[in-house]
Design a binder for these strands. Structure first.
Lengths: 148, 148
DNA sequence: CGGTATCCGTTCTGATACTG
DNA sequence: CAGTATCAGAACGGATACCG
């Protein structure tokens, strides 16, 4: 496992900087930033969103998350398990069966993430329109600009 | 405006595929996934969270988002501008002054993202504890396992 | 079935230099 | 101040092979 380098040490040293308008710590070495980077991860987000109430098997998840490789699903699930968001249950049967379910903590995160997914669904039209408008604008500007 | 209808409930036609438990489209080539990947981006998330109500200048943002390079801030802001989430205002003065502010659409996203940041703040202790427990467990298992 | 280990190309990112 | 351009290195992520 080459990734997963976690150096979660953060001590507030140095002179007090200007964090006037922002009440939460935006420093890259702070814990909130570390967790935010994990939670805001492409695959983590999808897995959390998919694991609603009902537990899913490894292969079920792999089939539902279109485009994820076995490797990335494993890595993602390990991280979520480490963070206490997902629980991994191994059943000692043949063929092997492993279930993944949200922990209580994971369920609270699920609510927040679901809100993000819902927002995206509801606003995808507006974003697509904005992109089209932006691209059109840039194209026109490009036409009227001298080439280097 | 024109996008009032969500077409995320139209999977129940023809042969019933396995979208039973998931009501939104999880295919990698769908629009929701594309937007989600952008919105769930490390830097986008921070910039949106920081741009609350008050507009900020390029350098202000750069100073607030600890660890971001000039390049990535530019790239992130261009994407957010293209998606219609952030508005870029150039003031024709010297020295140059460029303000970045949330659009109305960006403000609605800000609410959702702020919820994610708040969740992270409130639960960072639990996650840190889960990580410590996980690492301790793995260390003990590693000690009692034969080395290859 | 549910992984782990390894290789290796692609993408991302930061440092640097330069411009209006 | 607010960028753009370029480039090398790091991280990401997929393909493959193999194991319990």
């Amino acid at each position: 496992m080459e990734e997963g380098t976690s150096k979660s040490h953060s001590h507030r040293e140095g002179t007090g900087r200007d964090y006037e308008a922002c009440q939460w710590d935006t420093r890259s070495d702070c814990e909130v930033r570390q967790i935010l980077d994990r939670v805001a991860d492409k695959w983590s987000l999808l897995v959390i969103a998919l694991l609603d109430e009902r537990s899913l098997r490894f292969t079920e998840l792999r089939r539902k998350v279109d485009g994820i490789s076995q490797r990335m699903l494993t890595v993602t699930l390990r991280q979520l398990e480490r963070d206490g968001l997902v629980e991994r249950t191994v059943h000692a049967v043949v063929p092997p069966r492993v279930d993944y379910a949200l922990t209580p903590l994971g369920m609270t995160l699920h609510d927040t993430i679901q809100a993000l997914v819902t927002w995206t669904e509801e606003n995808q039209g507006r974003i697509a329109a904005a992109r089209a408008a932006y691209d059109t604008r840039r194209m026109r500007e490009g036409e009227s600009l001298p080439s280097p």
